[in-house]
């Protein structure tokens, strides 16, 4: 009963807190630019407004277009149930759940791409093509990084991995874990369409990727998509922060505290990255992703060498 309550609390805290992270990112960017910035809860207001509005569907779209936001949201929610928070057990956990985790995110991307193609707009098709091109390079990085974690912890389930990782793991495999965190940070930025790859603020510009695929959505559907994007940010951020806080080796009440602080630090870090970097030209993005792949493979090779 106690674990059940704990799991419910974990899930709901994620579901409620996720849009707040975007608020923190935007506030950091605003402070860097010398502006006051939108309220921290702006995304909640936006979603409340969108949920009260009606929907417009283009006549060329089919049921795929209408189903995509719901499937995407449920896929990312499923991924959330697999991800442990702050070294507690995840609500759903079984050997090999990390593959399901990776492909829940994959499913979310797949339906978004399908829906973008379903509109028949050449503009959205362009975004879909870019999204698929970059994710084809990003997915191996995520899988190899997770495989390296499996090797480091010696168990094929996310809950067990983060339960097994302690200060001792860091002392034994520190440089490799730093490489994994760096690779995952790149993936975090790519998957969430953040700045070195895609600019979340641009609309109607020829270089955008994620925003262009959801241009045709309106009302509650758009709210679902915004919410799913913020949950994706949350769940991938959780993966990074879980690795990072295992270094502190905390117990009891301090672990959730460190976890919350870690998520906020990550959001601020993303804000800083977005403020000091320009978006890469599209031709250079594969180079960035290959760089992340190099980091992940290097970490995997090192860990495999030391644990075999």
């Amino acid at each position: 009963m106690k674990t059940l309550l704990l799991h419910a609390f974990m899930l709901f805290s994620g579901l409620i807190a996720a849009p707040f992270l975007l608020g923190v990112i935007n506030r950091t960017k605003a402070l860097f630019a010398g502006r006051k910035g939108a309220p921290l809860f702006q995304l909640y207001f936006d979603m409340a407004k969108l949920l009260r509005k009606g929907v417009t569907y283009s006549r060329t779209t089919t049921w795929i277009f209408r189903a995509a936001p719901v499937i995407g949201l449920s896929a990312v929610m499923t991924a959330m149930t697999l991800m442990p928070l702050a070294r507690m057990s995840a609500p759903l956990s079984f050997p090999g759940d990390l593959v399901l985790f990776a492909y829940c995110l994959g499913l979310m991307r797949f339906v978004t791409v399908l829906a973008a193609l379903d509109t028949g707009s050449s503009f959205e098709g362009m975004g879909a093509s870019r999204e698929v091109q970059f994710s084809a390079l990003a997915e191996p990085v995520l899988i190899i990084a997770i495989a390296a974690l499996v090797c480091a912890a010696g168990s094929p389930s996310l809950t067990a991995i983060f339960a097994a990782m302690t200060r001792a793991t860091w002392q034994a495999l520190g440089p490799a874990l730093v490489l994994i965190v760096a690779a995952l940070l790149v993936i975090f930025l790519v998957e969430n369409a953040r700045i070195p790859v895609d600019d979340p603020n641009t609309h109607l510009e020829l270089t955008m990727i994620h925003e262009v695929m959801v241009l045709d959505y309106s009302g509650p559907d758009l709210a679902f998509i915004l919410y799913a994007a913020s949950l994706k940010l949350w769940v991938l951020g959780t993966l990074i922060v879980n690795i990072a806080i295992s270094f502190l080796d905390l117990h009891g009440f301090f672990t959730p505290l460190a976890f919350t602080a870690g998520m906020l630090v990550l959001a601020v870090l993303v804000g800083i990255i977005e403020s000091i970097m320009a978006r890469l030209s599209l031709l250079k993005v594969p180079r960035l992703l290959m760089g992340a792949l190099v980091l992940a493979v290097l970490a995997f090779a090192f860990i495999a060498r030391f644990t075999s």
């Binding site: 002392q171 495999l173 090192f302």
Partner: peptide, 22 residues
């Protein structure tokens, strides 16, 4: 696996990769 040694080796490989991509 001592931290200093491995950091040096990781930097060695990473700088070669940086040269491949720059």
């Amino acid at each position: 696996m001592t931290a200093l040694q491995d950091t040096v080796l990781v930097l060695l490989v990473l700088s070669s990769f940086a040269l491949l991509g720059a």
